[in-house]
Write a protein that binds this DNA or RNA. Structure first.
Length: 270
DNA sequence: AGCGGATGTACAG
DNA sequence: TGTACCTCCGCTT
């Protein structure tokens, strides 16, 4: 589930459903129980996302900071909420809605200063309209690290995960092992602009679709295929299958403990 | 029933 | 670089 688009969508959904009214907060699982008691009855005033970090703001009490990690999941729905199971770390309730959080890496009550410190260590986020590609390119262009690793480094660019990384490199024909310093400014600006468009669409649809209209299964006369994550992609988790464009075999490799996918024929070294 | 893997990160050494 | 952590799901027995 969780790349930046998921978190921005969660911020939007929480703002629409919970902002401006007192919220009941629970932690059936227990780890957030003390904070839940403090927060119950407070008004949720803001919901923000930066990269993969979610912040829910309560005027007098601070911010709930949530990071889903690899396994975290939210379910949102109408009231009445289902009986809470003992894996629900955080439950928000109003008369109309509930939201349940399970399995997060982080769910903690933090201060304004602590929140600011998190923003300070994150890079620009394609989904924040205040952010642009320049600051990230300064780091990319000075680095011998591969572009595949740089795209996953949240200090360089915030919100990109394993799916967007693989897909955006494919869409731009860039070999994932290209050192950052060999990526041109034009290439980086194109990657950034593409991420803005892809991730905005990701927020809207709540899933990752990266295949251009002219390459969809219908357009190409091939059987439809949708990844487990719910969207249509070029290379992500398609190891040893034929490339949608050239028919060559998609490759996979380990890079910094994550699975990398790319088409060696379509993605050429710089 | 049990295993392995997954859209992630932090910390140890 | 390796490992720990959090949960769920699909595959194998």
């Amino acid at each position: 589930m969780p790349e930046g688009h998921t978190i921005h969508r969660l911020a939007d959904d929480h703002r629409e459903r919970f902002a401006g009214e007192p919220v009941t907060v629970r932690s059936p699982q227990g780890k957030f129980a003390d904070s839940a008691a403090l927060l119950t009855g407070q008004v949720m005033e803001a919901a923000e996302a930066h990269g993969k970090h979610l912040f829910l703001g309560f005027a007098d009490t601070g911010w709930i900071h949530v990071h889903l990690g690899l396994f975290g999941k939210y379910t949102l729905g109408a009231t009445p909420a289902p009986p809470p199971t003992d894996t629900v770390r955080l439950r928000l309730l109003t008369d109309a809605y509930h939201s349940d959080l399970r399995g997060p890496t982080t769910c903690a009550l933090i201060t304004d200063d602590e929140k600011q410190a998190i923003h300070d260590r994150l890079g620009p986020d394609p989904l924040r309209d205040t952010d642009g590609p320049e600051k990230a390119y300064r780091r990319v262009s000075r680095s011998r690290t591969t572009i595949a690793a740089l795209l996953m480094d949240q200090k360089v660019i915030a919100g990109v995960g394993n799916v967007y990384r693989a897909e955006v490199l494919f869409r731009h024909g860039i070999d994932p092992y290209t050192p950052g310093k060999d990526v041109t400014e034009a290439q980086w600006n194109a990657i950034w602009a593409d991420l803005v468009a892809l991730m905005r669409e990701g927020v809207r649809l709540n899933r990752i679709d990266t295949v251009r209209p002219e390459h969809t299964p219908e357009a190409m006369g091939r059987p439809p295929r949708v990844d487990d994550h719910g969207g249509e992609v070029y290379v992500y988790r398609r190891a040893n299958q034929p490339c949608h464009l050239c028919g060559g075999e998609i490759r996979t490799a380990d890079l910094a403990a994550r699975n990398l996918f790319w088409c060696p024929a379509c993605q050429r070294p710089a």
